[in-house]
């Protein structure tokens, strides 16, 4: 299952945090900063899987025991422009499929905000939560289809746009999303 979903920007400022277990706020913050430290040190050419941050590293190496299936063992991330999207999950998830899941999440946001950018997420973090709620419930993925996710969010009410005076810069338009490396989902 998925243990946490995090979004933060290039400076490590959180834009979305969702933990599927109840954690103290201070522990959450420590985890975020640990992951940020790991992720920000990686060159662009490296793969999208992180080693476990110190907070999550088990003390003993009992990797083969079945009990470890409950413990988070996989940190997957993707980097889009100014934002990092992070998924922390157990070994029951497929690493490559999780990368696709992040892609769906971002595409859904893009569809809802039309050319989504960090500002949209800052001002509409409630909508972010709504999108995530359509895809993952209690750490289990419930929907991977883009259309249905968008539909589900729209059913909850009008999606607010970013306040007008915040404005968008010049024409940075275009669907800036890189197409998924793996066609299938």
């Amino acid at each position: 299952m998925i243990n946490a979903v995090l979004v933060f920007n290039n400076n490590g400022q959180p834009r979305l945090t969702k933990f599927y277990t109840q954690l103290d706020t201070s522990v959450q913050q420590r985890l975020i900063s640990e992951i940020f430290t790991l992720v920000s040190a990686r060159p662009a050419s490296s793969c999208n899987f992180l080693p476990l941050p110190p907070l999550l590293t088990p003390n003993q190496s009992h990797s083969s025991s079945s009990a470890s299936n409950d413990a988070p063992s996989l940190v997957t991330y993707r980097h889009y422009a100014t934002l990092y999207f992070i998924l922390i999950s157990t070994s029951t998830e497929s690493p490559l499929a999780l990368l696709d899941l992040i892609q769906v999440f971002v595409e859904a946001l893009d569809r809802l905000f039309e050319n989504v950018c960090e500002l949209d997420l800052i001002f509409n973090f409630e909508t972010q939560h709504a999108v995530l709620g359509e895809m993952i419930v209690g750490g289990v993925v419930v929907e991977t289809g883009l259309e249905r996710v968008v539909e589900g969010v729209r059913a909850q009410g009008r999606v607010a746009k970013r306040p007008v005076n915040e404005g968008r810069g010049t024409g940075v338009g275009g669907l800036g999303l890189g197409q998924g490396i793996w066609a299938g989902r």
Partner: peptide, 27 residues
């Protein structure tokens, strides 16, 4: 590294990282 030990502050954004940039894979 900054942000490692003291908690994260919601900082005003740096100029160089324009949050208005459309989200896309970084160069």
């Amino acid at each position: 590294d900054r942000g490692m030990h003291d908690g994260i502050l919601p900082m005003a954004d740096d100029e160089e990282d324009d949050p208005r940039t459309t989200i896309r894979p970084k160069e």
